[in-house]
């Protein structure tokens, strides 16, 4: 009887790990392929599909770095990502807190208005946005690139955070109020720490969107000194010729910071409520 129980449990765990491992494999293999491709040459990259490269061309990385002018673009992308993510978290959490926990006339209408921004696709409004930025004298400035992206990330972030703020236990808020916290105090000392998993998710989503953003940069920026990282990758993709090994090396370089950021953030996704509750 007990043996059967254990056996069943074992079997269950084996099946579970099999599922996990096979899904994990499909997630890792492309990355490995990308990495091994980055060490090949243009004429072997598609003729020799082996993952293990016998004579790795490490110099691809150096060439990609210099040809793609990554040094300068990298810093730009960091500035954009930090600014946009910071801006989104700050403005969205304030608004979401108001939508979830405070009362004021027009609340619902405003919330749905924000939601709508997620739903009307950008293609039509791209040129209108450019005209607007031109009027605001923000074309070819960092601010002109940052602000629309904060706006673009807002709706999703407000929605996610509202969902999380609404689930906060009311008594925590009450006890904080008794301790003399104002609304802002509750937001800052109770709501934000408790929403840490959601904030981590928002940081990851937005950071990735900004890091990979490219079209808007092409539209709004023209000085090379303002361009983000993705501009560097473009160098390897001609209208006709794509220099695949350099491109793969470039993409690998570009992907590392995002993966590292995710590594840091996923810990916050996990250490959710318990840690937060103690602190609060």
């Amino acid at each position: 009887m007990i043996n059967r129980f254990i056996l069943e449990k074992r079997l269950k765990s084996v099946v579970m790990h099999l599922i996990l491992l096979s899904v994990a494999a499909t997630c890792i293999l492309p990355l490995i392929w990308m990495f091994s491709s980055s060490l090949k040459t243009q004429d072997t990259i598609f003729s020799n599909m082996h993952i293990i490269v016998s004579d790795p061309h490490w110099e691809n990385y150096r060439e990609a770095w210099t040809k793609g002018n990554f040094g300068a673009y990298f810093l730009n992308s960091v500035i954009y990502t930090v600014s946009v993510v910071g801006g989104v978290v700050f403005t969205a959490s304030l608004a979401a807190f108001a939508f979830a926990r405070l009362n004021f006339p027009g609340k619902n209408i405003m919330f749905y208005m924000f939601l709508i921004t997620m739903m009307i696709p950008i293609p039509g409004s791209f040129i209108a946005l450019y005209v607007l930025l031109q009027k605001l004298r923000l074309v070819n400035t960092r601010l002109g690139y940052i602000l629309p992206q904060i706006n673009a990330g807002l709706a999703l972030a407000i929605y996610i955070l509202k969902t999380f703020f609404e689930e906060l236990p009311k008594d925590l808020e009450d006890s904080a109020r008794i301790d003399g916290c104002g609304k802002f105090g509750v937001y800052w000392h109770i709501a934000m720490p408790l929403a840490k998993p959601a904030i981590a998710v928002i940081v990851v989503f937005n950071a990735m969107a900004v890091w990979n953003e490219y079209l808007l940069a092409m539209l709004i920026l023209s000085s090379k000194s303002l361009m983000p990282l993705q501009r560097g990758l473009m160098v390897f993709q001609g209208a006709h010729i794509t220099r695949y090994p350099l491109l793969m090396a470039g993409i690998t370089i570009a992907v590392v910071p995002i993966v590292v950021l995710y590594l840091i953030m996923q810990r916050h996704i996990i250490t959710g409520i318990t840690a937060g509750a103690v602190k609060g």
Binding site: T141, R142, M192, L226
Partner: peptide, 19 residues
């Protein structure tokens, strides 16, 4: 979080207004 905002402020003011 605070340091992020400080940096944000820094970034916007220093690099913000065009080249």
């Amino acid at each position: 979080i605070l340091s992020v905002f400080v940096f944000l402020f820094f970034a916007l003011t220093i690099f913000g207004c065009g080249n």
